[in-house]
């Protein structure tokens, strides 16, 4: 499968390889700080999707699909399960559907860690956004190839 135009550029290629892990890390950072500060699942997801799209531009469709390992729609599925599932813990403790639940974990070195259903929801959004954006990008890239 050779592209019609040779768009490969050494600079972009190397840059993408270096940037990809950084961007993914940055997207996770955005995701986790999102509860109290600017950031969140949506923006984090966009950054992560952009990282993989960059891989697609630098190399090709196949390379991008390989890093993702799964079909992007499956990511959407996992994201939706998490986001919808985040509504359920409240029911188990007898509160209104979708009420936020908070758990505090005491860890030996880091001090206390606060976990919550909004965090689960946000991770769901994160995965959902990556999946949706990449589905669109891959669909267009696939059409270009064939």
């Amino acid at each position: 499968m050779t592209p019609r135009f040779n768009m490969r550029s050494l600079i972009l290629n190397t840059g993408a390889t270096l940037l990809l892990p950084l961007l993914i890390l940055f997207s996770l950072f955005l995701l986790l700080r999102g509860h109290d500060e600017p950031g969140g699942g949506f923006i984090g997801g966009l950054v992560a999707a952009a990282a993989i799209a960059l891989k697609l531009f630098a190399e090709d469709y196949r390379a991008a699909r390989t890093i993702l390992r799964v079909h992007p729609l499956q990511l959407v599925g996992v994201g939706l399960v998490l986001a919808a599932g985040a509504s359920l813990p409240a029911i188990l403790v007898g509160e209104n559907f979708f009420t936020a639940q908070w758990w505090t974990l005491d860890l030996p070195i880091f001090g206390s860690l606060k976990l919550s259903t909004p965090l689960i929801f946000d991770i769901g959004v994160y995965l959902g956004v990556i999946g949706t954006v990449l589905t669109v990008v891959f669909t267009l890239a696939e059409a270009e190839h064939s």
């Binding site: 949706t132 954006v133 669109v136 669909t139 267009l140 059409a143």
Partner: peptide
């Protein structure tokens, strides 16, 4: 995004 894909197709 969907509309763009649709129109492309």
């Amino acid at each position: 995004a969907f509309a763009v894909v649709l129109i492309h197709r």
